[in-house]
Structure formats: C-alpha cells, structure tokens
Amino acid sequence: MNLSLIKVCATAIVLSFASFNAAAGDFSAAWDAADAKRKEAGKMGAEWRDTGKMLKQAKKAAEEGDEAKAMKLVAKALEQSEDAIAQYQREGNLWAARVPQ
C-alpha cells in the first residue's frame, strides 16, 4: 500500500516536471525533426537556400525566450523541406521531356 502510494506520487512528480519542461522539449524535438527533413532534402540535392538560415534563427529565438517565434520558424523550415522533397519527386517525371530532341 505504501509502495504504490509512493509510486503514484513519484509518477505525479515526474509528469509535472515533464509538463513544466514540455515547451522546451517540444521545441527541441520539433527543431530536430525539421533539421532531419532538411538533411533528407539535402541528400537528394534538393535543399532550398533559406531553410538552414530559418533553423538558425529559430534556435536564436528560442535562446532569447521567444517560444512563439521559434516554433513558427521551425514550422516554416519543415514546410520548406517537405516542399523541396515534393518538388524533387515531381521533377523526376518531368525533366527528361524538356531535353531538346
């Protein structure tokens, strides 16, 4: 009985810490995901010019405490990489027909 009570309390404490740090954790995870997508686009040779800069600016905003701006930039960067990959795939079927015959 005592043990399970301790367990419940411990879980509550851990969870409360988790939610306290949720914001910071959310940004970190989101930033990592966006950077991974950027690298994926880069491997295809499809990366866009401004994506890396956006992620740098996002980190800076987070360090300065502007959570909202930081998350907005991360979302923008992720979208850029997704659009770049979509462009690469779309072009796979289109480029060859442009070659003069």
Partner: peptide, 17 residues
C-alpha cells in the same frame, strides 16, 4: 501555375510559400 502547366517557368507563389 504548375496545375495548368507543369513546365511553367512562373514560380508557384502559393505552393512554395
């Protein structure tokens, strides 16, 4: 503009944000 012409040289201002 790629909807009408996938080879259009006009940038897709909305699609590419």
């Amino acid at each position: 503009p790629l909807e009408k012409n996938p080879n259009s040289i006009m940038p897709p201002f909305g699609l590419h944000n």
